[in-house]
């Protein structure tokens, strides 16, 4: 996928650092078959996310939302919020960053995955300057109409361990590593 020049869109430091190649090591991603549901133990994301104004503004710009509270720091500072307000789905950027490439939850990067819908719960708004870490655990796994659904419960905390938000992250996945390998090779690896 590196044939696509994403660099022309980069504006933030994190965008310059994040790997755009979801094929790289894709056969190492966790699969539907791999997930261990025998324990409720939570596990940490691969890295933390320190929120900068440029991160929030980049997300709002990416979803074509020109709300001044999300895009204009001076305007937001004069509002009752006193600082930039993130677009609620900004959590997506935090999640992909924190989950990373090597650790648990990297199945969200799977080529061939499909998004059936998502559930977000917000406890406190994210603020510029906070450092966010995530804790994940397997939540559900099921087969419906021949499709393999996987859900993780992902909680977002700041540096003071205040829970900011929860995402029940759901995808329809290729079932096995062999299926992912097909997708990497450009062959459909799904039956349904």
């Amino acid at each position: 996928m590196n044939r696509i020049n994403f660099e022309r869109f980069f504006k933030t430091e994190k965008q310059k650092q994040f790997s755009t190649d979801f094929f790289k090591n894709a056969e190492e991603y966790e699969t539907w078959d791999d997930i261990d549901f025998s324990s409720d133990k939570e596990f940490d994301g691969e890295q933390t996310f320190t929120i900068k104004a440029e991160d929030m503004k980049a997300y709002a710009e990416g979803v074509l939302d020109d709300n001044a509270l999300m895009n204009d720091e001076k305007y937001a500072q004069k509002s009752p919020y006193r600082s930039l307000v993130p677009h609620p789905i900004f959590m997506t950027q935090i999640a992909f960053w924190c989950i990373g490439t090597q650790g648990r939850g990297n199945w969200i990067r799977t080529p061939g995955a499909r998004n059936p819908g998502q559930d977000f719960e917000f406890h406190e708004p994210f603020r510029v300057g906070e450092t966010i870490h995530i804790k994940m655990r397997p939540y559900d796994r099921y087969i419906k109409r021949g499709k393999y659904y996987l859900k993780y419960k992902t909680d977002f905390y700041n540096q003071k361990d205040v829970k900011k938000a929860t995402w029940i992250l759901t995808l329809i996945l290729p079932r096995t590593k062999a299926d992912i390998k097909k997708f990497v090779q450009g062959v459909r690896g799904l039956d349904a």
Partner: peptide, 12 residues
């Protein structure tokens, strides 16, 4: 542009 904003570079 959304891929860059969200870090979701899924080829689909």
């Amino acid at each position: 542009k959304y891929a860059v904003a969200s870090f979701d570079y899924n080829p689909v």
